[in-house]
Design a binder for these strands. Structure first.
Length: 141
DNA sequence: GCCAACGTTGGC
DNA sequence: GCCAACGTTGGC
């Protein structure tokens, strides 16, 4: 099972918005970037990901699960763009900030650090475990 | 609010 | 196919 990271501006789509959707989840639509789209095409149902708030908060705030594999983005007729559906699983007891991530040598290769503008990213198992621990989870899900 | 990074578009 | 111009994102 693979791990991912989804970046969102909270003013557009926040963790609270995601939680409010419950188990029904929501399309991660609106991505118009080939690299991010290609990342989503690799996702499988049951994969987990981090939910990251860009802009003001700049922190990983929660964990989401992929509940539908890549399919056409319903917000456009342009067939180039696909997206997955995700649902909120649980918040991190303590958000992990970008500053903490940048300060941790284990996380220096993360796309979050290397490619700030990529909105959907892969996360390695080691990075996943490290951030879960930093976020206050006893055990990485 | 500014600016660096970087992706996209369009003219040639 | 190249590259300049332009637009957007996101950190500071």
């Amino acid at each position: 099972m693979s791990r991912w990271l989804f970046k969102s501006e909270p003013s557009t789509w926040s963790w609270d918005d995601q939680v409010a959707k419950g188990d029904a989840g929501e399309e991660w639509d609106g991505v118009r970037n080939y690299q991010a789209r290609n990342v989503m095409r690799e996702m499988k149902v049951g994969d987990l990901g981090f939910f990251y708030h860009s802009q003001d908060q700049k922190a990983v705030v929660g964990i989401v699960e992929v509940i539908a594999a890549s399919h056409p983005d319903s917000t456009t007729d342009d067939e180039r763009w696909d997206c997955v559906d995700i649902k909120a699983v649980r918040p991190l007891p303590q958000p992990v900030t970008l500053a903490e991530i940048k300060a941790d040598p284990r996380l220096s290769d993360m796309a979050l650090v290397r490619q700030a503008r990529l909105s959907v990213q892969p996360v390695t198992d080691a990075e996943w475990a490290a951030i879960c621990a930093m976020g206050g989870l006893d055990e990485a899900p």
